[in-house]
Simulated assay, not measured.
Amino acid sequence: MASATTRDGLSLRSSPVKALFLRQDVMLLGVLVLMVVFFTAMNPRFFTTFALANILQDWAPVMLLAIAQTYVIITGGIDLSVGSTLGLSGVTCAMVMRSLNEGGTGTVATIVVGVVAALLTGMAVGLVNGLLITRARLAPFIATLATMGAGAGLTLVLTSGVQIAGGPTAVIRLGNTQYLNVFTLPLIIVFVVLAIAWVVLEATRFGRWTYAVGSNSFAARGVGIGVQAHLMKIYLLSGLLSGAAGVFLYFRLGSGSPTSGQGQELAAIAAAVIGGTSLFGGSGRMSGTVLGALITTSVLSGLILIGVAPNWQQVVIGGLIALAVGVQQVNLRTGKVAGHG
């Protein structure tokens, strides 16, 4: 018996395969492979464990911010404050650890308190964002733009524009000791956080509610979802992950830099949008965000290795964002959506 066919002549059996290859995250995987081939052909050092280790160290903080941005954008919002929150949290971590270390507090206690202080700082910014959006009814763009400026300014006030060092020497050891010549303990923790965030988004009620709020907030209210409470949780999560990104950079560098978060909000938004998360809300995949973050961070290493000025990274990322948004617009007009899963 002949197999049934669709209107375009493809068999129903082959349609799922076609749909798979048309998924944005699958296409991005192909783009990443082609990029690796290109940069390796231009400079073989790109395809080495040393280069991979450096790329992953750059990828980790961007990935934490991109996870936050994915959740936020799926709800139909945006968080422009993640970069300044990263910087403020990293500086807070550095200042607390320096103070405790100089006061003779034990290494373990110093590190634990410093990390907790950084995470609480991130959550405090997230709380302010959530209140501005859910209580003051400010648009997410305006609310997070305000906290972005305030956070960056406060970081400069606290540090006088200089790096904060003086923490326990164990910080550098923990942040830079490699396993298998690639992985560090903070990097492994980032992978664990990514796995948890992925499962929560794709397989829990919290994730389903996140998609529902972004798809149609009125309908979400109609089925009993507390939209304002959920948005508050989303922005608290964004602040928490931004604080974690600040901690990662502190452990990597051994100091808190007031400029460490500059431009990171663009990289995080780029990773999510390039990965297929719709700026219109309601759709996106964590798999796409992972690939988007890998692409945006690999570009910098690749450009440096082939002798191109790293400033071109921003140009490339800007072009990729424009292309990704253009694809989203076309898909919206043709009735295709990224979905989730």
Score class of each variant (00 low, 15 high):
165 A>I: 08
195 A>E: 11
187 L>H: 05
222 G>Y: 05
180 L>Y: 05
146 A>W: 06
162 V>D: 09
239 G>F: 04
218 F>L: 14
146 A>C: 09
182 V>N: 01
187 L>E: 10
161 G>M: 08
174 L>G: 06
203 A>V: 04
216 N>H: 11
189 I>A: 12
148 M>A: 06
156 L>R: 10
217 S>K: 12
146 A>P: 03
245 A>H: 08
139 A>T: 15
149 G>M: 11
229 A>F: 09
238 S>H: 01
144 T>C: 13
205 R>Q: 15
206 F>V: 11
164 I>G: 11
203 A>R: 15
139 A>L: 08
206 F>A: 15
211 Y>I: 00
188 I>M: 12
238 S>N: 09
216 N>G: 13
241 L>G: 10
153 G>C: 13
173 R>C: 09
152 A>R: 12
161 G>K: 08
231 L>W: 11
193 V>S: 13
243 G>P: 00
167 G>D: 05
161 G>R: 05
210 T>C: 10
203 A>W: 08
143 A>F: 04
192 V>R: 11
218 F>A: 12
179 Y>F: 15
145 L>R: 08
173 R>P: 07
193 V>T: 15
184 T>L: 14
170 A>N: 04
186 P>E: 07
246 G>F: 07
188 I>P: 06
191 F>T: 07
158 L>K: 10
179 Y>E: 12
179 Y>V: 13
209 W>A: 09
219 A>K: 14
153 G>V: 07
191 F>L: 15
150 A>V: 05
185 L>I: 09
186 P>L: 01
202 E>S: 11
185 L>T: 14
229 A>R: 15
